[in-house]
């Protein structure tokens, strides 16, 4: 099951050129671009591991693509990698754009579990099949 999180996730995977274009847009707006990765695809897993530091002083997308390729070397195929852009201007101070750039080849998806409690009430719970295994060995 294809994970859809962040922008562009219903589109086909972005090519490197398209990623660089989006990154350049973020840089031109003065946002700091970050590269993050995780192997826990749960939608409520908000805080991913950061790859290096936020790139505050990179002026060209090529710098970010360089880091992204480094990150891919280490994690591609086994982790989700996303690019996020942080806007530090006063009153924004939050992430303005975030999109997945790399995903595991095989995404098993989620299990929906139902739990009966307090008589007939039902609790629903989603678990990613991947997270059954320990971190680092999931994909």
């Amino acid at each position: 099951m294809r994970i859809t999180q962040g922008a562009f996730s219903f589109l086909p995977d972005l090519t490197d050129e398209q990623i660089a274009g989006q990154v350049q847009y973020c840089i031109d707006n003065g946002w700091a671009v970050n590269i993050e990765f995780t192997d826990d695809p749960h939608p409520r897993n908000t805080y991913w591991e950061m790859w290096g530091l936020p790139m505050f002083d990179v002026k060209d997308a090529a710098g970010v693509m360089f880091e992204l390729n480094e990150c891919r070397k280490a994690h591609a195929g086994r982790h989700y990698i996303r690019v996020s852009a942080f806007d530090a201007t006063h009153t924004w101070e939050s992430v303005r754009l975030s999109f997945i750039v790399d995903r595991p080849e095989n995404e098993p998806g989620f299990a929906l579990e139902r739990q009966e409690i307090d008589g007939r009430r039902i609790h629903y719970r989603t678990t990613a099949y991947a997270t059954v295994k320990p971190e680092g060995a999931r994909y």
Binding site: G52, M55, D57, V58, K59, D60, A61, A62, G63, V64, F66, E67, E70
Partner: peptide, 14 residues
């Protein structure tokens, strides 16, 4: 290595 790469990243596009 990280230090050099940091500088190279900063200089890219220039």
């Amino acid at each position: 290595a990280p230090k050099t790469k940091e500088v190279l990243k900063k200089a890219m596009g220039g």
